[in-house]
Amino acid sequence: MRMFWWNLLQLPSSVSASEVLHFSLAKFWAWALSSGTLGTTTSPQQPRSHLNKQLEFTTSRSNRRLLYTYIQCSSKRTIRISSIISIFPIEPPHLAQTSTGTELQKMEEQPEARLAASFPAPPPFWQSFTEENTTLISSLRASQSVEPSKEFDPSTTLPPRILDLPAELRYLQPPEPPAEGVYRCFGDAYDLNNPLPSLEEQDIQQLYIPPSSPNAGKHSDRALILKRIAKSLLLNFIELVGIMSINPEHYAEKIQDLRTLFINFHHLLNEYRPHQARESLILMMQDQLEKSRAETKGIMEMKEKVEGILEGLTKTGLGDEGKGMGGGMVEGGVDVWEELEREFC
């Protein structure tokens, strides 16, 4: 081991990192093969495979280490740089005295502590969305669909379901929309039809008379109620301050009032949400419409400009040569070339 590190330290300083890695790997294999100290189970015939097993084990453990670059080692097995780095700790001379067994053990423990990731890994099926797979499935769909001429519009209809798909294409099939209205997202179950619980259900006094139906009636009275609640909030706060200055023990009742007011306010706003969503949709559509129209206008203007230029060109061509439309310019050019040739011959 000491010899090995010594070799590593003897490297010329100009070599690149990958060269160092290759070099050190080769040295490592050489050292591992020549020394009998790999472990109790190592037989002289298969030290290499045994070591590879150990290394692979540590690589899989250190999957989430920062370094993700692969290198191909001489035995055609992929080993990640991170594992190499964990083989070569920062202070090599000390490790030279430790036995290989404890060193490997150390390597196994090391990644454990750093496994905590800020974000969960993406679901595994993102890897199925390769270029080949997408073209393959679109061709399959084209052959399956009843009307091959009709273009498939992903925004309105689901693609036809193909039942016997090869395994690697299975994830490219969009799942059925939730039939029951329940779907899972980030491990939690959600219900599409989850109604907003009313205030009575939550044992909170309702301070306003609900507009006949939350979505049908006019909403301006809603704004009025909101304004009233906002004003009551302020008034109740002043009362609370007054109570606190005279008899602080009696705060509870007023705090309760304030709480009820706040909850009512929020509840009213939450009831308003579907309306707001529709309203936002309308705004977005108006926006889109404007954009589309502006684009069309721009294209038309440019077209007219180009047409004007073309017109101009044709006219000058006509004026200069006095020949028919379209052909004028070509022939004019040919004439010029002939003229030039005559001059130089």
Binding site: A216, K218, S220, A223, K227, H275, R278, E279, I282
Partner: peptide, 17 residues
């Protein structure tokens, strides 16, 4: 109060929308 008064589409009902 200002935010309340500018809530979008106060005058529209669901059918209008």
């Amino acid at each position: 109060e200002f935010l309340i008064s500018v809530l979008p589409g106060l005058e529209n009902s669901e059918k209008d929308q």
